[in-house]
Nucleic acid binder design. Structure first.
Length: 489
DNA sequence: TGAAATGTTGGGGCG
DNA sequence: ACGCCCCAACATTTC
């Protein structure tokens, strides 16, 4: 008595929105929002099956919920990806809700037996993937994952003891020795070989996600200054070209001077996987070949790419990198509770004009020059003696390039609690830094009070702390930490 | 990918 | 001519 009622099978046929003799592959995008130089995309095309591009919006999927600025970026990047796909007569399918359920639905709707995606290297999402492979879905689905975003996937290279690297320089050497730091162009595909499912019954309800809702943020118009960036693959390519042509020559000498536009401004593009580090290495090599005097700059910039990789190496060793000190002795560091100080810092009201300019740049543009990031972070951690996690969280929320590995790793680097960190006693003098790196006040004037259209920022203030006093206090705190951790042993 | 304290050196003024 | 002091300019050490 296992007769299928004819009506039910008819119903099943009718609700099956897509029918094709060849089962499609699902191309599940996460933080690899591009089509070119993408091993997963290349594999999907090479399978010669129809491709169903998918994005799942599940806020609980990653270790941390996205910050507000990142939401702004993601929204536009997904839109750009959808447009790129439209050029291939395809669209991006957007699902919202529990990722496992969403994926299961799409598998059922499409009859796909293959899911192709990239490692996100977010610890929680990696765990999700592993669970999926070993679940019932994994029984009948071929789950292919590629590394589309790092030079070396964490765990790929190890020390001679077989341990993961905790210090940058040996890590870098190993990267080079293993041939992972060469300009190899990653696999790509020809547009003509992209295959779409025969009919396309799904809409792309991107706007229904309301990712772009930044209204709750500051009242009005918070994101108006973000528009100097163009999220998406094309924007990333243009940004790289502009960097190579206009600013790379200046990079080696000018990157520490925030008034010079000598930095690449590629960080948010890298964070969302709109461009790959391999691609950047390639383009750098080409640029140097054409113009040998770019070599010194290119070498310095390549090093920064290696640092990004190294951050992921650290995140892999400490999945809670944004909440846990990489060096445990910092667990007994006597941080101060200073809510007014923290608020002053966030709002650019510390009375140290370089710090304040930096914090305003962050708020207005979703970005901050790297040199100024170090000064601002050092000020919070060492002059105000406020826990680095508070600052990290603020940056996480405000930075367009807020990266799950780079952001916490860099904060721990400044705080001295990181793996290969700056020694804690290396304390920036915000006035000296301003004198050295913004001697003509160009940067400070650019992000001065006057430029602000926002009520958050009021008139300049006298310094909220005396630096000489604060420096002494920070060194004492370090001594206290050492005493604490010694007595604990 | 610091800064401040401390140490050293060397030139010049001066008795 | 010489030693002495002063101090700027570096260099080294320490946090």
């Amino acid at each position: 008595m296992v007769v299928v009622p004819p009506l039910l099978s008819l119903l099943k046929f009718m609700t099956q929105p897509y029918v094709d003799s060849v089962a499609p592959v699902i191309l599940w995008f996460r933080t690899d929002l591009r089509l070119r130089d993408h091993p997963g995309v290349a594999a999907a095309v090479a399978s010669n099956r129809p491709i169903v591009p998918l994005y799942i919006w599940d806020e609980t999927l990653n270790t941390r919920r996205l910050g507000a600025a990142s939401m702004w970026w993601l929204h536009r990047s997904l839109k750009a990806l959808d447009e790129e796909l439209a050029g291939l007569s395809s669209r991006l399918i957007i699902k919202s809700g529990d990722a496992r359920a969403c994926l299961s639905d799409v598998l059922q709707e499409t009859g796909a037996k293959t899911v192709i995606c990239s490692h996100s290297f977010d610890p929680a999402l990696e765990r999700f993937d592993e669970n999926l492979v070993h679940s019932d879905i994994g029984q009948y689905v071929d789950f292919q994952r590629y590394n589309a975003t790092l030079l070396a996937a964490p765990g790929k290279i190890k020390t001679l003891d077989g341990k993961p690297f905790r210090v940058f320089t040996p890590y870098f050497r190993s990267l080079v020795a293993n041939g992972l730091f060469r300009p190899d162009r990653p696999a790509s595909f020809r547009a003509a070989t992209w295959r779409c499912p025969r009919d396309w019954p799904w809409s792309a309800p991107l706007d229904s996600l309301r990712l772009d809702d930044t209204r709750g943020r500051s009242g009005r118009n918070w994101a108006s200054g973000f528009d100097c960036f163009t999220p998406g693959e094309r924007g990333a390519r243009d940004a790289l070209r502009a960097f190579l042509e206009d600013r790379l020559l200046l990079y080696a000498t000018g990157r520490d001077f925030p008034e010079c536009d000598a930095t690449s401004r590629l960080s948010p593009h890298l964070r969302f996987g709109e461009i790959s580090p391999q691609r950047i290495l390639c383009e750098l090599a080409c640029a140097v070949e054409r113009q040998p005097n770019l070599a010194a700059s290119a070498e310095k910039f390549r090093m920064e790419l290696a640092w990004r990789d190294f951050s992921y190496q650290l995140l892999d060793q400490q999945p809670r990198l944004h909440t846990v000190n990489f060096r445990p002795e910092f667990d007994s560091f006597p941080w101060r509770d200073d809510e007014p100080g923290f608020r002053a810092w966030c709002r650019g009201q510390t009375g140290f004009n370089l710090v304040d300019a930096g914090m305003r740049e962050l708020w207005r543009t979703g970005y901050m020059h790297n040199r100024v990031r170090m000064v601002c972070a050092s000020f919070l951690v060492k002059d105000l003696l406020i826990d680095w996690r508070r600052g990290e969280q603020w940056f996480w929320d405000c930075l367009l390039d807020a990266d799950p590995a780079n952001n916490p790793a860099s904060w721990q680097w400044v705080a001295g609690s990181g793996g290969d960190a700056a020694p804690y006693f290396r304390i920036f003098n915000p006035a000296t830094q301003a004198e050295k790196f913004d001697p003509k006040r160009v940067y400070r004037d650019r992000y001065s009070e006057a430029g602000s259209q926002n009520d958050l920022f009021s008139s300049p203030r006298t310094p909220i702390v005396d630096h000489a006093f604060a420096r002494r206090r920070a060194l004492d705190a370090l001594g206290e930490m050492r005493a604490n951790s010694e007595s604990r042993e």
